[in-house]
């Protein structure tokens, strides 16, 4: 699963893969798993219409969130990371072997998603929505600034934001998860990138 997702991130569309490439993929998966220190934290909040998280008194202006989770009673706001050793190793490969750097990076992206999915199932049970992250659709990316402070992410899981509001360590995510509900069907309908989407051009999707 992780390797397939990683291949998708790398732009794979049924090209022929050599044995040495498949070995590289395996090695990267093994290394990512060894070097990751997955940490996660969450807060559960009641929801007030249209989309106010009562736990933080935080209002989110996003039609996509309202549409996806507006009917929920309870929302979990989740944050997680694979840790900084992944960043270190990626840097190392940049200097040594760019191909490995790119594959390693894609595998790490796939792995953090998989770890977060597993964590959600473990903590919230199977009845929860997909994860909706700041930066997707019209969910403002700036929200991460507030979430970082409100959830004390630096202290809890060692995650902070750099000068351009991107997470450090790089393989870190936040997201909103609707509790006590089923996953909805995913679609490209509301994505802001659909005009320029490289996946769609290849006949694929990012999910």
């Amino acid at each position: 699963m992780i390797k397939q997702t990683a291949l998708k991130y790398l732009g794979y569309s049924n090209q022929e893969l050599s044995d040495s490439f498949l070995e590289l993929l395996d090695t990267c998966e093994k290394e990512v798993k060894e070097l990751s220190h997955f940490k996660a934290t969450y807060v559960i909040s009641k929801l007030q219409a249209p989309f106010i998280l009562t736990a933080f008194d935080l209002r989110v202006d996003s039609n996509d969130l309202i549409e996806a989770l507006g009917s929920c009673k309870e929302i979990a706001i989740i944050a997680c990371t694979l840790g900084s050793e992944i960043d270190s190793r990626t840097r190392y490969y940049h200097s040594l072997d760019m191909q490995k750097a790119v594959v390693f990076d894609a595998v790490a992206s796939a792995y953090v998603e998989a770890c977060c999915d597993a964590y959600e199932d473990e903590v919230f049970g199977k009845n929860h929505s997909f994860r909706y992250a700041p930066g997707y659709g019209d969910i403002p990316l700036e929200l991460n600034q507030q979430l970082c402070k409100l959830m004390n992410l630096h202290k809890k899981i060692g995650v902070s934001l750099d000068a351009s509001s991107l997470f450090v360590p790089m393989k870190s995510m936040t997201g909103f998860v609707g509790l006590h509900m089923d996953k909805q069907k995913k679609s490209c309908k509301s994505c802001t990138q659909k005009e320029h989407c490289e996946y769609l051009k290849r006949g694929s999707t990012c999910y």
């Binding site: 790398l10 794979y12 569309s13 191909q99 790119v102």
Partner: peptide, 14 residues
């Protein structure tokens, strides 16, 4: 043309 993808491009470049 999509016959090779990104990691293979990089491999050839290196």
């Amino acid at each position: 043309s999509g016959k090779i993808f990104l990691p293979q491009l990089i491999q050839s470049a290196e």
